[in-house]
Design a protein around this nucleic acid. Structure first.
Lengths: 228, 228
DNA sequence: CGGCTCATTGAATATGGTCAACGCAAGTGG
DNA sequence: CCACTTGCGTTGACCATATTCAATGAGCCG
């Protein structure tokens, strides 16, 4: 099992602001887990005793709405730290974290985190910056959700997926989501999403092969996203 | 002009975690402003040189969507600190802050804030807790926006307004928003909001007198909000 | 009294959700 | 190997919801 001090992933998240000693402590108390596609890392309402640092794979963070539908609030990938928010506010988890593909995550007990927060201002400020950035993104999502059509949001989602997760050798989006997951990301019914995706295909904006999708006309998609 | 050390408002926000010396410094550099209803405290894209602490009145924090419509992301009242997020990430403001009624705000230059953040872990963690809480709320708003109908969201909005801003002696909501503002809070067209409000009135859920609104049947509204 | 701003209403249209059916591919167990 | 299930993706038809454009009213202020 690797040592946090040498972990490259750390460069992407707030743990990079920890001192050598702090990292050593984290490394000594952490455990590494493999999470299979579809498995739950933690669920809404769970009491979290630490945070999860994503080393590999992708997790969806979602919340069940009162009407019984899941809304995916964000996708977390390599470098993300899950559960941070709940640990800080000492509340139960507000979102569920479910693996979208096979993952490798490190669990870091909360004491190591909280002690560093309370004693190392550099670390606290670094975490603060990350959360502040998340908040900005969340505000932007609110605006998108409430002001854009489903079609625009789906177009944006594809662009987002390509930008953040890249493509495989055949040009398909490297992260393959089920139609249902796509619908849950943009907040619509699965059938609605399917219809729009099918339209995009007919318009030549994307290519689709089973659940795999490739962006064929990036500019065109962009036009749609901005409202054509 | 009052001294921050004696300011009661401070109890509601992260400034309560500052030491006496830090507060003194804030107090010496701060300025107090009166902002009239409709005036802009800062706009999207502005570079902020400090934060604004709300002593009285209410501000709407909104963002213009690409299609030209304003989305009100949140309402900030007594005790709220505006612009905090932008100062922390050293980005331009992501939202506009506009006074919904006459306000009194204190402007605190960012140096005092940043220096305390970097040297006082108590303060940093307190700010962190606040922002983490804001993030949770934002995530919840995302779920509401994408999964609930306009009718549900308007019902929730009225309940929210009563809970957070109270009523006047006649039972009307103490914070009076224009129909357009209500529409912008729930993310819909003004006419849609108006129609639904008019329905609520016919159903006896609310009373309306011009732009003033009073909740008549709290339980009924709650039913609607949960989806009846 | 204009001239404003905002609330209100109607009618036509667009957009999205729901229900139901069918196809296809990947297992699974006999 | 075949019948059977199961999970998705896909499509159609219908209904509900929300937007848009347009017109009218109601109150307010100089």
């Amino acid at each position: 099992m690797g040592r946090c001090e040498n972990c490259i992933i750390r460069q992407f998240n707030s743990l990079r602001a920890m001192s050598k000693e702090e990292l050593k402590r984290v490394s000594d108390t952490k455990t590494t887990k493999l999470v299979k596609k579809g498995e739950t890392i933690f669920g809404e309402g769970d009491k979290l005793n630490g945070v999860f640092c994503v080393r590999d794979g992708v997790s969806k963070l979602s919340k069940l709405s009162p009407n019984g539908k899941d809304q995916i609030v964000k996708l977390a990938t390599k470098g993300a730290v899950l559960g941070q928010r709940s640990v800080i506010t000492e509340e139960v988890a507000n979102l569920s974290a479910i693996a979208v593909n096979d993952m490798e995550v490190c669990f870091v007990p909360k004491d190591a985190i909280m002690d560093s927060l309370n004693s190392n201002p550099n670390f606290a400020v670094e975490v603060l910056r990350h959360i502040a950035h998340d908040l900005k993104e969340a505000d932007d999502v609110i605006v998108n959700m409430s002001q854009k059509t489903v079609k625009q949001r789906i177009a944006e989602a594809f662009i987002y997926l390509e930008e953040n997760f890249g493509k495989d050798k055949n040009g398909y989006l490297a992260l393959t989501l089920s139609r249902e997951d796509i619908a849950n990301v943009v907040g619509t019914a699965t059938e609605s999403a399917i219809r729009i995706i099918s339209d995009f295909k007919k318009l030549g904006l994307i290519k689709a092969f089973g659940k795999k999708v490739a962006i064929a006309d990036r500019n065109g998609l962009n036009e749609v996203a901005k409202g054509s």
